[in-house]
Computed example of a mutant assay.
Amino acid sequence: MQVSSSLSIERVDAGEAECILPELAALLHACVHDGASIGFILPFGIEDAAGFWRGTILPALVSGGRILFIARQGGALAGSVQLVVDTPPNQPHRVEASKLLVDPAFRRRGIARALMGALEGEARSLGRSLITLDTRTGDRAEPLYAALGFSVAGIIPGYCRDPFHDHLDATTVMYKRL
């Protein structure tokens, strides 16, 4: 999907993801080092980032449990987001948005919004009627999700460790009905 003359959003399968693994690892590494609360803490090396994609995401892409979208701007990998479709049998109507990443060098250009638009379109095409996600309370992404129509379900205190400091942050659980 071409978003602008230099921004494109692509759905990437496991084989394609494996081919761009170094780029995906660099994207994750940059976001974690910029303070993104996405499940990792420092120290976090490029090998750790590659290991996450190789050991967790590639198998989920192969099994069909996740769908990966990437954003390219001017040919460079600028961001990614994952749609978790592997939900329990009592939740066939729901999907989860996971690991929205935008390289710090590409922020404030509409990339996150475009990625979330592709994710939402895919959820609709799959017949899903609910998207859920969680984000660190007060994080930069929280206002974006609200602007995209997500509502706050609640806040869980002490949910995750801050990537830089030894303290626990709250998370905001959000949802959007399609």
Rank of each mutant, 00 (worst) to 15 (best):
Y175S: 07
P59K: 05
R109H: 13
A147G: 09
L77Y: 07
V12G: 02
G149W: 04
A112T: 14
G65C: 06
P43H: 10
I41M: 00
E96V: 15
G15F: 09
D48Y: 04
A76P: 03
G138H: 14
A146N: 08
T135Y: 06
V62I: 13
R109Q: 15
L77T: 05
I70P: 01
Q91S: 04
G138V: 12
V95E: 09
R108S: 13
L68T: 11
I70R: 04
H93Y: 05
V3H: 09
R124H: 10
H165N: 02
L115R: 13
S5Y: 03
P92M: 11
D48F: 02
G154H: 07
R66I: 04
L77A: 04
H93E: 03
L42P: 11
F106R: 00
A25N: 07
V32G: 02
E23S: 15
S63M: 10
T171F: 03
E142V: 10
S4L: 13
G65D: 11
T137I: 02
S8K: 12
A141F: 14
R124Y: 06
A76F: 10
G154D: 08
Y145T: 09
I41P: 00
L42F: 08
A36G: 00
Y175A: 06
L178E: 04
I155E: 15
S8R: 12
G121S: 08
P88C: 06
S98A: 13
D139N: 13
K176T: 10
G51H: 08
T137Y: 04
L28T: 04
L148T: 12
L24D: 02
L83V: 08
R107K: 15
E122T: 01
D13T: 04
L133W: 12
P22I: 07
A118D: 10
R161H: 01
A26E: 14
A50S: 10
V102K: 07
W53H: 12
A147K: 09
S98F: 09
I57E: 11
I57G: 09
L68M: 15
F40Q: 01
F150A: 02
H33L: 07
D162P: 05
V84F: 02
A153N: 03
E47T: 01
A50F: 00
A146C: 04
V84G: 01
K99V: 01
S8E: 11
M174I: 06
A14D: 09
A112Y: 11
I9N: 12
E10T: 05
L7S: 14
E23R: 15
A60W: 13
L42G: 11
I9F: 10
L148I: 14
R11G: 05
C160G: 05
L126W: 00
L77D: 10
A114P: 03
D139H: 14
D86I: 00
L101Y: 04
D169Q: 14
I38N: 03
L130M: 10
L126D: 00
A71F: 06
A25Y: 06
C31N: 08
E18C: 14
S129Q: 12
R72V: 01
A170Y: 07
T172A: 09
R94F: 03
R128E: 08
A153G: 06
S151D: 04
A141E: 11
T135I: 04
R54C: 05
R54I: 05
P89V: 12
R136L: 00
L144C: 13
R177K: 12
A25V: 02
R107D: 12
G45Q: 05
R136I: 00
L130H: 08
C160T: 07
I156Q: 15
Y175E: 05
G65S: 06
I57A: 13
M116R: 13
G35T: 08
H165T: 03
G15D: 15
